[in-house]
Each structure stands twice: as structure tokens, then as C-alpha cells.
Measured scan of single mutants.
Amino acid sequence: MQRVNMIMAESPGLITICLLGYLLSAECTVFLDHENANKILNRPKRYNSGKLEEFVQGNLERECMEEKCSFEEAREVFENTERTTEFWKQYVDGDQCESNPCLNGGSCKDDINSYECWCPFGFEGKNCELDVTCNIKNGRCEQFCKNSADNKVVCSCTEGYRLAENQKSCEPAVPFPCGRVSVSQTSKLTRAETVFPDVDYVNSTEAETILDNITQSTQSFNDFTRVVGGEDAKPGQFPWQVVLNGKVDAFCGGSIVNEKWIVTAAHCVETGVKITVVAGEHNIEETEHTEQKRNVIRIIPHHNYNAAINKYNHDIALLELDEPLVLNSYVTPICIADKEYTNIFLKFGSGYVSGWGRVFHKGRSALVLQYLRVPLVDRATCLRSTKFTIYNNMFCAGFHEGGRDSCQGDSGGPHVTEVEGTSFLTGIISWGEECAMKGKYGIYTKVSRYVNWIKEKTKLT
């Protein structure tokens, strides 16, 4: 034993070699072989497995989906700052455009905790909710729209109204504003409101030439003092309507412009014939205590009207009353817009006519005020429907199939267009061939041609 100890002390290297040989010859039971080890760690190889990531292109799944990435790591994937920024906006807080917040056709661009709407022409605001041009839906104005110097929408209202708090709607500024039905039992019968379409306001006024200088022999019209197929109006439903009495009662109609003036057809009036105007009328054979009678003290036909040349060209006249009318729910003026808007309103496509005229061709006159909704007829169809001249200051309205029309005794009465609950004068009943005849239409004086003249002559002093 002493000898062994001496050998170990003198030859430590020998001992180490012996131990190493023993270990190498022993069977290893701690580690699995290569094949079995792979069965336990069965993990798919990654895209760049075996390579240094710093030297390969980034992978979106590896960089940002398996674990949260930084902007720089995302930049490695896209290799483009702009594309990385677009991805980053949604990656950080989701897609803010998912709810489609942009209105009126706006395009949404996502941002971090926010979004941006790219608005089409005519709109602005956070969600493109603000109209900035009158060309689109009248700028959301209830009545009139004008573009300011910086191309912003400025709404306005006709006389007797003021802008509401929203700067879009119009509200009454006087007790009985024009064009409004205020009798409670008839307010439910107000005709369907007309909503502004998209309009090209630059070209809204037709490029028409008034044929002022045409000389033409007097034409022989049949029954051209021209509501057939209409309905009984309720008291106060058309408070701007008046009836004219002269040699015979209810020979023509008219509309209240203001307390002192009536507008009617020029062919209705004769110099030297006494005319009485009755406002607030409903049943011409009954006294309903809503009527107001006034005498006409002055007749002003349009300066281009000449019955000797043509009885229905420039067929418009103004009547001055001896005493002002007292405005109330049964006696209310009709609204008159400017030339541009009167023309736009007419193009809405349908209007209402009213009167006490004959209820059928050569038949009896109506006792109760009649009204009828009539569609506008395109000019080409209008011209083809008659052998008589249709001037540019006239328009056609009615039904091709016949059966409904204005008729004798309705002449001078109103053709009105309702705009968001307020009625505007767009025409004056003038003439036609018979009444409600198939293929024939009622012919009306186009008020847009005469609004400046009306307003100039009827100013209240």
C-alpha cells in the first residue's frame, strides 16, 4: 500500500490518463441519441435557420407576430419608411378606419389613436360632414345658397324668414311668412316636400332668348283662358290664391305678392273693366268669414305684352289694390325667389296649380277651390304637342294621358313649387288646347323671366 501511494504521488498524470480511459469505455446513459432527441424537440425550422439574422431580410411573422416588435424591426421587413409607417399605425392600436367614419364618399386613412378623412370636392370637416359648395344638395341650405369668396357655403332665406341657429334652416321672422300653410287642420295635408338634388348652379339658368321682337298675326285659340281631375282644397291650404270678379264672377285667378299687390295673367284683364279681388276665398257660393274683398285701382301688364300681336306672350300683369290686405292664416303671400332659384325650383319637376275653373272641358265651374299636382314636361315634348308657338318664356306641365289639367277660369292662378315646406311661385296658368285632352298640356308663363320686374313694381313704400 505504501508503494502504491508513492507511485500516485510521483505520477499524477498517469492516474488522470487511467481515469479518462475508464470513462470513455463506459456506456453513456444520461444523453439520448440524435434521433430520439429530435422526437422530443420537434420544432419547425425557421426561415433563416442556421444563418445569422443580421444578414437576412426581415420576416413579418418572425419579427412582429411571434413577439412584439419595434418600429426598427418592422422597418427591416418593409425596407421602406412609408410602408412601415402605414403598417405601424394599425399594428400599434388597430384600424381606426374600420367603422368607416368618413361621410359623403370620403376616404379614410388610419393613424395612431386617430384617423384622417380625405374629402371629395365640396366637403370638409373631420368626417367630411361639412358642405362647402352650393353645387351639392344646395349646400344643405333649406332655401338659398351662395358661395363666399373663400368658396364656403353661405345660406340665406327669402323675405319674412331668418336663418336658424344651425345656419342652414329657415324659420319665420314674421307672423305670416310667405308660402307657408298655417291653418292647423290643413298642415297635415301639406304636399310632399321637395329635397334639393345635386345641381350645376353655374349652368342652372337656361341660355334662352326671349323672342321679344317676333311679330306674329293673332292666333285663334280655343278655350285658351284655361282644375280638371283635381281635388277639393281645404280652407287655408292655398292662402296665396285669390279669385278675380268682373263682368262675371271667378273669371280668373291670381296670387298675393304682398298686402297691396296681386300677380295674374295679362290676358285676364281689360282696361276700363272694374275688377274686384277676393282673398281668403274657399267656396265661392258661401260666406265663410275668411274672405277679404278689395278693388283694383291700377293694372300693370308687362311692358312687352301686346294682345294685338299675341294674347299669351309675356302673359303676366300686376294688380294694385285700393287697401292693403290683412295677412292671416287664410290670406298669405306666395314666396318669389330670384331668377336663378325660381328656375331651379321649376326644374324640380312638379308643381301645384289651383283655381275655381271648370271641372271638365266646357263644363261647370268649381264651387270649392280645386288643386292638382302636375309634372313638368320637357321642352321637346311640349313643342311636338301643339302647332302653336311655345315661346321661351312659357313652359308645359300636365299629363300625356289627359284627364287632369287646369281649365277655363283658372287662368292667372299660381303654379307653385314647394321647397322644404315653403311654396314659391314658378308659373302662372296661361293657356292650353281644350282641357285635359290626351297628348295636350297646360301652358304656363315662366315666372323666372319676370321676377325682377315683379319685385321692382310691387315694392311697398
Rank of each mutant, 00 (worst) to 15 (best):
L24Q: 05
C69S: 00
H267M: 03
A308E: 14
N393Y: 05
K137C: 05
K347C: 03
G106D: 03
S187N: 07
V447R: 00
W240C: 00
S423T: 08
E288T: 07
V154I: 11
S217C: 06
V447L: 08
G122K: 05
V56K: 00
H303T: 09
H302V: 02
H314L: 01
T422V: 09
K440Q: 15
I443C: 04
K109G: 05
A337T: 03
G355M: 05
Q90R: 08
K260H: 06
H361M: 11
I40N: 04
C157T: 00
I136W: 09
C170K: 01
V242D: 00
M394Y: 05
D150T: 12
M8G: 14
C382N: 02
R358T: 13
I40R: 08
Q185I: 12
V243T: 10
I428Q: 03
T194M: 13
S448Q: 05
I262S: 00
V4Q: 10
L41P: 03
G412R: 04
N5W: 08
N245E: 07
S448C: 04
S184G: 08
I262Y: 00
V278L: 08
L425F: 03
S99P: 11
N393L: 02
A173G: 07
D315H: 01
V242Y: 00
V227A: 12
T190P: 12
P197E: 07
E79M: 09
E67G: 00
E286T: 08
L318K: 00
C145T: 04
C69T: 00
E401W: 13
F345M: 07
G21L: 13
S354M: 12
F360H: 15
N313S: 10
Y341N: 13
G253E: 04
G229F: 14
Y312P: 04
N100D: 11
A9K: 08
T287G: 11
T133F: 07
T381S: 05
A436Y: 08
E129V: 04
I136A: 14
K247V: 13
M65L: 10
R191Q: 08
T458L: 03
Q143Y: 03
E61Y: 03
D223E: 08
K347Q: 14
F176E: 03
S430R: 03
E165C: 04
L189I: 15
E27G: 10
C141S: 00
N452P: 11
F348W: 10
E86D: 09
H415E: 00
E73M: 00
T332L: 11
R373A: 09
F360E: 15
F78T: 03
Y441Q: 03
G50M: 07
T81Q: 13
R62T: 04
K362W: 04
G105R: 06
E98P: 04
C382R: 03
L460M: 15
Q370G: 08
L325D: 00
E320K: 04
N166Q: 03
Y91G: 05
C119V: 01
F345T: 01
A233W: 07
H303S: 07
Y47T: 09
A317D: 00
V181Q: 11
I443T: 06
K152L: 10
D232N: 13
V183I: 13
T84A: 13
E129I: 04
A37S: 15
W261F: 08
C108R: 03
H302R: 03
G439S: 12
A164R: 09
N147C: 08
E79R: 06
V263G: 00
R226E: 15
N222V: 09
G236T: 05
F221P: 15
S430L: 14
R404G: 15
E129Y: 03
S169T: 11
Q2S: 08
E54Q: 02
L24F: 13
H400W: 09
N100P: 04
R373H: 12
Y441M: 10
E320V: 00
V202E: 13
R373I: 05
I390G: 08
V263F: 02
L346Q: 08
S354R: 08
S107L: 08
L425P: 00
I300C: 04
E129W: 03
Y201L: 08
Q408V: 06
S354C: 08
V92T: 08
S255V: 14
V374C: 03
E10S: 14
G355E: 04
V181F: 06
G58K: 00
E27L: 03
C178M: 01
E142P: 04
T271C: 05
G236M: 07
K68N: 10
D338I: 04
F176Y: 11
A397R: 02
Y305L: 02
A164V: 07
P235H: 07
D322N: 07
L52W: 06
L60D: 02
E10G: 13
S156H: 10
F176N: 08
F395H: 01
V447W: 00
E208F: 08
R83M: 08
V4C: 13
K260Y: 08
F221G: 07
T389A: 15
V331F: 00
L372T: 12
L103C: 07
V202F: 11
A164N: 09
D131L: 13
V181K: 07
M8W: 12
E401C: 05
F388C: 06
D378R: 06
D405T: 15
C178V: 01
V56Q: 06
L23R: 02
